[in-house]
Design a protein around this nucleic acid. Structure first.
Length: 273
DNA sequence: AACAAGACCTGCATGC
DNA sequence: TGCATGCAGGTCTTGT
């Protein structure tokens, strides 16, 4: 499910039910997700109040009243459900949290590429999963100059470079293809050659695509996106992703599908140079 | 240092 | 109601 727009949608959906609320019950149904959960995870989370929900890249960071951070990553298939009080238990419901007013939040992740951690707030900046992340693309510090500086010297295709969270934080396979089409840049182009005017086109294109996707509640491919259970609908606005063989919405020529570093890329050979 | 490929894990669509 | 194959929104680890 989750690239930046989907994670941001989930974060927003959790804010109302969780911020300011105490967690009165925490159930951990298995010892690990992608990695082992921290020692005493459920016990340490129980009784804490959530003060703030932040997003960094594709991570949700719940700031707790004991100056710790509950970190959540949804991996490829993670979902947060708010209807845990009524939905039947699923075999991949790995963590269940109940708030003081009875909302039952379920973390479900059948592929188990997701991550959870619990650590002191003071370790945020040095956390191994956070410390090397590139700029937030929706922050005002992200622009063409910042982008081209991070692409300089890189000999990999721009598609692969944009998937690198050290270059810019939060893009994934869908939105990289989308942003490159909007910017008119070929996914095969050498990353280092995206500088000057091209970088000045690409940075705003990335922002525009992400903002439009957030406004649509993200993209729902095979499952729900929003914590509320509603579907996102940005998939109906995809310019190229998953549209191999279909006509480019700009020029009408068929969208191409290629594989780059093992992952599908979609683009229009006529519109993207 | 930077890069491509492999690894992790389950479920689903497709083709036989 | 089988079985094999390939693919999927991520990112860490391995080998060059």
């Amino acid at each position: 499910m989750p690239e930046l727009p989907e994670v941001e949608t989930v974060r927003r959906g959790l804010e109302g039910p969780m911020v300011g609320r105490r967690l009165v019950r925490v159930v951990q149904n298995r010892p690990d997700l992608r990695w082992p959960l921290p020692e005493d995870f459920a016990r340490r989370l129980t009784g804490r109040r959530v003060e703030r929900l932040e997003r960094r890249a594709k991570f949700i960071l719940a700031h707790l009243d004991d100056s710790h951070v509950w970190m959540i990553h949804l991996g490829m298939s993670g979902r947060m459900h708010l209807d845990g009080a009524t939905r039947p238990a699923g075999k991949h419901d790995h963590v269940v949290v109940e708030t003081e007013d009875g909302t039952v939040v379920v973390y479900e992740d059948h592929r188990r590429f997701g991550i959870m951690d619990l650590f002191p707030e003071g370790e945020l900046a040095s956390h191994r999963l956070l410390k090397d992340l590139g700029p937030e693309p929706l922050s005002n510090r992200f622009d063409g100059a910042a982008l081209s500086a991070r692409l300089a010297g890189r000999k990999t295709p721009i598609k692969a470079a944009l998937l690198d969270q050290k270059v810019v934080a939060g893009l994934g396979n869908i939105y990289v293809s989308e942003a490159l089409h909007l910017a008119g840049i070929s996914p095969r182009r050498l990353a280092a050659s995206v500088a000057g005017a091209r970088a000045e086109r690409l940075a705003p294109a990335i922002r525009e695509v992400l903002q439009a996707a957030i406004a649509a509640g993200g993209s729902s491919l095979r499952d729900y996106v929003q914590a509320s259970g509603e579907l996102g609908y940005f998939q109906h606005q995809w310019r190229v992703y998953d549209r191999g063989g279909e006509p480019c919405r700009t020029c009408g020529r068929p969208i191409a599908r290629i594989v780059q570093s093992g992952r599908s890329t979609f683009f229009c050979g006529a519109c993207q140079k």
